[in-house]
């Protein structure tokens, strides 16, 4: 045998030109990903809101396509791309990564799984491990959410394997909001329900084609009313709930309804 190390026979000898080509491909891929990550979110804010989630969803998909394309272009530059060579290389990488970077790679794989299972997409409002916020970016290893307090939280995709992921709008515009009202027993239930229904119906934030529900729960300390409705845009959810709460309270005060005693309702709150 001429080659003292047969494992190295699968590789090209890297020339300066190859290295420059690889560098250029990586730079181009990085630049393309950077532009797509800026362009699609910007465009999503400019177009009518019904297209927003679709455009945001294109960000991770575009990134994956760019990475695969770069990978496919780079491989032949340093490797003889036969089936046997690829199997050998991937096998060796698999063993090395399996021991050294298990969690990291698991997150990367989970990141790819999220692209077709779509447990969350940019624009979704999700809760994982107590962190609630809007999905801003799906990175290769993590999902980046922004909480209502404007704090960015990075959640590794790895959580997908063993954590419950709560998605409030699941890729759509429909995110149910609830405003709670706690009253004592001395009032006419039908009147209060109608009043709360009209509170939602007259809200500027309301997605009027969706159903409005006023649920009533009897408690030992009084009645718990849950006014459920959908805002036009999931991003308006906190404004919407505030609007329902403020106007609902004002209307109930005008009606002369008594609120449940504070001490008691904190015990009985569902």
């Amino acid at each position: 045998m001429n080659d003292p190390n047969p494992a190295l026979a699968i590789f090209h000898s890297l020339t300066q030109t190859s290295l420059i080509q690889i560098g250029l491909i990586l730079a181009l891929a990085y630049l393309s990903i950077f532009i797509s990550q800026k362009f699609f979110p910007w465009l999503a804010d400019e177009v009518p809101s019904r297209f927003r989630l679709f455009l945001l969803g294109l960000v991770p998909v575009t990134r994956l396509v760019i990475i695969i394309a770069a990978f496919v272009m780079i491989i032949p530059l340093f490797l003889y791309p036969t089936f046997a060579n690829l199997v050998t290389l991937l096998g060796a990488l698999g063993i090395a990564i399996g021991f050294a970077l298990k969690d990291y790679v698991s997150s990367l794989i989970a990141g790819i799984v999220t692209l077709y299972e779509r447990p969350y997409q940019p624009g979704d409002w999700i809760e994982v491990n107590g962190a609630y916020g809007e999905v801003r970016t799906i990175n290769m290893r993590t999902v980046e959410i922004v909480t209502p307090d404007d704090t960015v939280v990075q959640i590794p995709h790895l959580q997908l394997w063993h954590q419950l992921v709560f998605n409030s709008n699941d890729g759509g515009q429909n995110l149910q909001c609830t405003a709670d009202f706690y009253l004592n027993h001395q009032h006419d239930v039908a009147t209060v329900r109608e009043l709360l229904y009209d509170t939602a119906l007259t809200s500027n934030f309301l997605q009027i084609r969706k159903q409005i529900v006023v649920a009533v729960i009897n408690r030992p300390w009084g009645r718990h009313y849950r006014l459920k409705a959908y805002p036009i845009d999931p991003r308006h959810q906190f404004d919407f709930v505030s609007d329902l709460t403020v106007r609902g309270k004002s209307a109930l005060d005008t009606l002369g309804v008594d609120w449940a005693p504070q001490v008691l309702f904190s015990e009985g709150k569902s």
Partner: peptide, 8 residues
């Protein structure tokens, strides 16, 4: 009026 008391 689009007000809680404006629809009755």
């Amino acid at each position: 009026l689009r007000h809680v008391s404006g629809l009755s």
